[in-house]
Design a protein around this nucleic acid. Structure first.
Lengths: 130, 130
DNA sequence: CTGGGCCTTCCAGTTACTGGAAGGTCAAGC
DNA sequence: GCTTGACCTTCCAGTAACTGGAAGGCCCAG
């Protein structure tokens, strides 16, 4: 399979697939003309990575998950732990974003937006308000 | 004021303050010994940026907000619009994170974590489940 | 044999810093 | 007067995860 085919199958751009090879995630074979040659196994692994990335796992976490995916002797508890740690990160981020959102909506609702220069939003950013 | 003092006042590391100067955000004066010399105005602007950053505004958005902050003839509607656009971005991110969280908790709750190799999480990442 | 669509490598840029090296300055204490 | 430690300076390089583009090779249809 050429890289373009894998790209269509996985939804990953060819550039990204080459990048993943470069950082040692998934290595294809090579043909005589130097074209990369992917088998089903590699295509599946790349789709696996694409999914993990879309769930917010970092490349390093993907590397870890991929190692477990490849290891027939894995313990599912390891996978579970990785996933749970990631959920915790996500929840932290959501909390942070919600705090930002809350502060911003408060500021915005205090601003009349009537094209005059005085602005509670700027004052909030400048002053000691939270 | 030396950079260390500004750092303590704004909560920004000296490195970051220098970086902000380098990208043209806030330029201090210089003393004879080449030390940066910040006035109250610069310190305030840096604190302004620190706050905006902590609310998730990008550097480019901060640049924009800072220009408005400096402009005595600004229209508060411009500030309001920038803030609202940013709120929209934040909400989108929260939605994405919540989707990830939901998918992940579903997968995790399906995994027994009993140290055997079979794992619904890996299957979910590999297979065509969402 | 020409054209378009593949494929290859390599280099550089993005965001927002952060770390570290090598060296100058300043104020306090002996 | 000298040392010591905490400052300050510049510059170079690295981080995450790609993405864009240049320059060039390959393959197949018409």
């Amino acid at each position: 399979m050429n890289i373009g085919q894998v790209s269509r199958r996985t939804g990953l751009p060819p550039k990204t697939i080459r990048y993943y090879e470069q950082i040692g995630l998934v290595a294809p074979g090579r043909r005589d003309n130097d074209y990369r040659d992917y088998g089903d196994r590699e295509a599946h692994e790349l789709r696996f990575i694409a999914r993990a990335r879309s769930l917010g796992f970092s490349i390093d976490q993907c590397r870890h998950l991929l190692a477990l995916y490849r290891d027939a002797d894995r313990a599912n508890a390891d996978v579970r732990a990785a996933a749970q740690a990631h959920i915790a990160e996500i929840r932290t981020k959501i909390r942070e974003l919600r705090d930002m959102e809350k502060t911003l909506t408060t500021l915005v609702s205090a601003c009349r937006g009537d094209n005059r220069p005085d602005c509670p939003i700027l004052e909030g950013l400048a002053g000691d308000a939270r």
